[in-house]
Design a protein around this nucleic acid. Structure first.
Lengths: 139, 139
DNA sequence: TCATTAGGTAACCATTTGGTTGCCAACCAT
DNA sequence: ATGGTTGGCAACCAAATGGTTACCTAATGA
């Protein structure tokens, strides 16, 4: 993953239950490394690594309070994930789903569905045809 | 990651630019494996593996159209990610952020902000103090 | 001064991940 | 029948990940 691929780094950091647990913990208030490590069976070194991953993704920041390093949750990367997700909201939002199927219907250039009743297969064929010339490599 | 940890599997599947590109592609319509693989420099086998990861996370499903396996984007896991994110919306939502800082200010026992503008350092100190006795291990 | 505590770092290990090549099966079209 | 697509699978490999133990520094406090 390229250094500048913030989204990959963020999602990869979030794809671990321990790290999500740490985030949940920090959501209720800043905490020191030992306080964060306390609920987990693993060594403090392992937790330190998790914190480093979270810090590398910009999801937390560390202050310095004499010998303590209070960790603080940073929301910005979560906002970016949410923004990415919003592009796909229509794929699970019920009401928008109805709108989409309506748009698909009026877009299907009059070709009557024939008797084949291919509601899934038909959509797949049309979609495949429609899209063959594209060269997107979005992320 | 335990087999039932859907969220980890989904986030891990999304934490790869190629796989997010595939999702972006499928968002514009179903596509066959070769169509999906075409924009990428890697082998079709590699793309097949990516598709398997996405399928394992429930993010796509495959149909069968004679020798083709048209892939279809499934929104449900994205909805789950969105639901998880919603718990933390207040950490990046501007208006809620203003509310939170207001609440923090009136909670800071009358100490007037002084000219020091210690908005971060001060919050860390208070938060660290506030939170010492907690034992959450959410995820 | 010296022991303790908070935390980071290094070396190591096993497993997972992301890629490759090569082969195989199924289906379509001569 | 045979050959050309479409796609999956297995074996292999290098690099990343998630954990360990051991050791180190910095600050506290008796």
């Amino acid at each position: 993953m390229s250094t500048t691929d913030h989204l990959s780094k963020t999602l990869s950091a979030l794809a671990d239950p321990t790290r999500r647990g740490i985030i949940a913990r920090l959501a209720m208030g800043d905490a020191t490394v030992n306080e964060i490590a306390e609920p987990y069976a693993m060594s403090r070194a392992a937790v330190s690594k998790h914190l480093k991953v979270l810090e590398g993704a910009g999801l937390i920041s560390k202050g310095r309070e004499s010998q303590w390093r209070p960790c603080h949750l940073e929301g910005a990367p979560l906002r970016d994930v949410s923004a990415w997700l919003d592009e796909y909201r229509k794929f699970w939002d019920r009401s928008l789903d109805a709108l989409e199927s309506y748009l698909e219907k009026i877009q299907a250039t009059g070709a009557p569905s024939s008797s084949n009743v291919p509601s899934r297969a038909g959509r797949e064929k049309r979609a495949a045809k429609r899209v063959t010339k594209r060269k997107r490599n979005d992320q």
